[in-house]
Write a protein that binds this DNA or RNA. Structure first.
Lengths: 206, 206
DNA sequence: TTAGATTCTGGCCATGCAGTCAAAAAATGA
DNA sequence: TCATTTTTTGACTGCATGGCCAGAATCTAA
């Protein structure tokens, strides 16, 4: 058996990689449809049409599986978002592109978006401590913070606490998605445009 | 036995009322300290120093207990917040008082604040549907929306989508609290002042 | 004092969970 | 072909949960 070896030792076999991808996809689908608390390994296995033991064979445990799901989805979001941000010049335009980019991604990939939200909110270790707590958002906050600071240095943005602005912008985006999930009839892109306006007004000089 | 009767039939006995209050308090304390998923009835009973069966005797089930916790805390928050909002005249002042009022309450009652957040986020019915989902926030959204509309009608506020603003303001407040919970060193009231400024700038006319 | 109602205890039950394992099946390669 | 390795199966373990209940303890009132 070689399932126990991380990418450290040998490379993973083709079939091994395919199974892992299949199981990750089944996990995304299951979590999105029944929510994290009811997405047991048995249920994920059923979604994939395999026996429960296969998951244990290919992943060290549920924790490793969830980690892989998060990495997979995050990479996907970054691939969608980063190019859009790179082509903007001003901080204001980047803020707008950030809000709009996430909304576009969510509209195109609601399953992945819902899954990652579910994992962030619900996944906890044996002691009840969140496995993706405030720490997970930290890199995000830092990059937004850097963006704001540069805009403030150039005089494009007013003086404000960049950390509070970053936390609030991220919260506004998350809430937009949550609201849309609960009320799919609403116009997500219109919400995103309003939200972008809101933050542009919040950061610009008097 | 009379535990099964809601306030409809007879009034509740003195001891009955005292026990219910004690159990609700124990639930608040337990959920705040170990989180909702680990706050089992057995654990809540242990916190209260009583046998598990007592909870079943005085409450129809865990759902009723959680409902009572929510009602208790919500009532408490409203009693703190409403008088402060009532004495303000302009929409701008009310927005500011709302943000600051919640922050003050959280600072004085972190246990209750954390408990209600935990319940909202984690409590789900047997089918996995959130028991306090988007519906729970609806009344809140509506009152903020009304406030904004009045401000817009009087010309004090610019034209914007009041629903998006309400969702975002609430999200900003929730995130402020979550951030403070994760990093208790930070200055909650300073965060609240920044947040209030942010929204005041977002709603005022150009 | 005593009968009846109320309240409490602690053990029990069915359910669902993550993870384990021996054995079966499938793939591999000599 | 056949021995060896990789992969899969499905039953099993141990644990935690919410709810249930028979009997004990306590309280109330006549």
């Amino acid at each position: 058996m070689q399932s126990k070896n991380e990418p450290d030792g040998q490379k993973r076999s083709f079939i091994e990689e395919a199974r892992r991808a299949q199981i990750i996809a089944a996990a995304v689908q299951t979590i999105a449809s029944v929510g994290f608390p009811k997405a047991s390994l048995a249920r994920i296995a059923a979604t994939a049409g395999i026996s429960k033991g296969v998951i244990s064979y290919h992943f060290a445990g549920k924790d490793e599986l969830m980690d892989q799901v998060v990495v997979t989805v995050y990479t996907d979001i970054a691939e969608h978002l980063l190019p859009r941000l790179a082509e903007k010049d001003t901080a204001t335009d980047i803020v707008r592109a950030h809000v709009m980019g996430v909304a576009e991604y969510a509209l195109a990939n609601p399953e992945r978006m819902r899954t990652i939200t579910e994992i962030f909110v619900h996944d906890r270790d044996a002691e009840g401590v969140p496995r993706y707590g405030a720490l997970a958002a930290e890199p995000l906050y830092e990059s937004l913070e850097t963006l704001y600071r540069e805009g403030q240095a150039s005089g494009e943005l007013r003086a404000f606490d960049p950390r509070v602005m970053a936390v609030t912008q991220q919260a506004g985006i998350d809430a937009m998605f949550g609201y849309w999930m609960a009320r799919p009839d609403t116009d997500l892109l219109a919400h995103a445009r309003e939200l972008a306006d809101l933050f542009v007004r919040a950061v610009r000089p008097d």
